[in-house]
Computed example of a mutant assay.
Amino acid sequence: MRGRHLKIAVILCAGAALAGASLPASAATRAPSDTHTSGARPVVVDCSFKAQVRPGTYLLACADGNNGLVKLHWKSWGASSATATGTNVVNDCTPYCAAGKFHSYAVDVKLANPRAWAGHHGQQRFTTLELTYPGARPDHSPRHVSYPLWS
């Protein structure tokens, strides 16, 4: 089990390293082949400012890679929202982030509130990401969390 968490940590950190420390929280690190971005459906924008549709992973902490979504299984991707189940992998940063341990939590994911994506004629992007933990969740985290995605 520890080896699996180490592998996930390496993937998340590699994505963060590529993204750069100055980017806002949002982000996908890998997406399946259906990432074509027509104006027909909204996209989610990753740490590299690339449009993604149904990404398999999504980095929440672009700056340091200490929080990300993996094993995303999309149930829907529509004009007003997208829903998935997956795993939230979070570094406990104890005693500090470089020495922390990654923990996995089952999570329900919802993307919502599509808005026009400035500079991308006719394309909309989701502006809100909501997480709901059906079981265990990170320390000090509420069962339902909503994140604004960068604008």
Results as ranks from 00 to 15, higher is better:
S151E: 12
H121K: 10
P148Q: 13
M1E: 09
Y105N: 07
V43P: 06
V45G: 01
G119Q: 03
A14I: 10
A79C: 05
K101W: 08
L111D: 00
D34H: 07
H120N: 07
R2P: 12
L72W: 02
A14W: 03
N88G: 00
W117N: 03
R125E: 06
R125L: 08
H5M: 13
G65A: 13
P55R: 03
G86A: 07
A19Y: 02
W77A: 12
L23W: 05
A99M: 09
F126A: 08
V10G: 10
L111H: 01
L69G: 05
L131Y: 11
H140Y: 14
A51H: 06
G135W: 00
P24L: 08
Y147A: 04
K7W: 11
H140N: 11
K7Q: 12
R143N: 03
G100T: 05
D92T: 13
S141T: 12
G119P: 04
A19W: 02
P114M: 11
L12W: 00
P42K: 07
H5E: 08
L149E: 02
G3S: 10
R41V: 15
V70A: 14
H36I: 15
R137V: 00
R41E: 11
H103C: 08
T29C: 11
R4I: 14
G15A: 03
D108M: 07
A40H: 04
A16Y: 06
S38K: 02
F126Y: 15
T128H: 11
Q123F: 09
V89G: 06
V53R: 07
K7D: 13
K101C: 04
H144R: 14
K75E: 09
A40G: 13
H120L: 10
A82M: 02
A25S: 12
I8R: 06
K7M: 08
Q124Y: 13
G78W: 00
C47D: 02
A99K: 10
P142H: 03
W150L: 00
A99F: 10
W77C: 09
D108G: 11
A112H: 03
L18D: 11
V107R: 00
L129V: 04
L60P: 00
H36A: 15
D139K: 06
D139C: 07
L72P: 01
V107I: 09
K7P: 01
K110W: 01
G56R: 06
A116P: 03
K71P: 03
V107N: 04
R143F: 01
G78F: 06
H144K: 14
S26L: 12
V145N: 00
F49I: 05
H120S: 08
L12E: 04
G39H: 01
G39A: 10
G68Y: 03
S33Q: 12
N67V: 13
A40K: 12
T128S: 09
T87N: 01
N88E: 13
A136K: 14
L111F: 15
H140S: 14
E130F: 00
A61G: 02
A136V: 01
I11N: 05
Y147V: 03
V90C: 01
A27Y: 09
H73A: 15
P138D: 07
D108H: 15
R115I: 12
R137E: 01
E130L: 11
K7H: 13
H73R: 15
A19R: 05
R115P: 01
L149P: 05
G15F: 06
V107C: 02
N66W: 04
D92F: 10
Q123K: 08
A28Y: 14
W77Q: 10
R4Y: 13
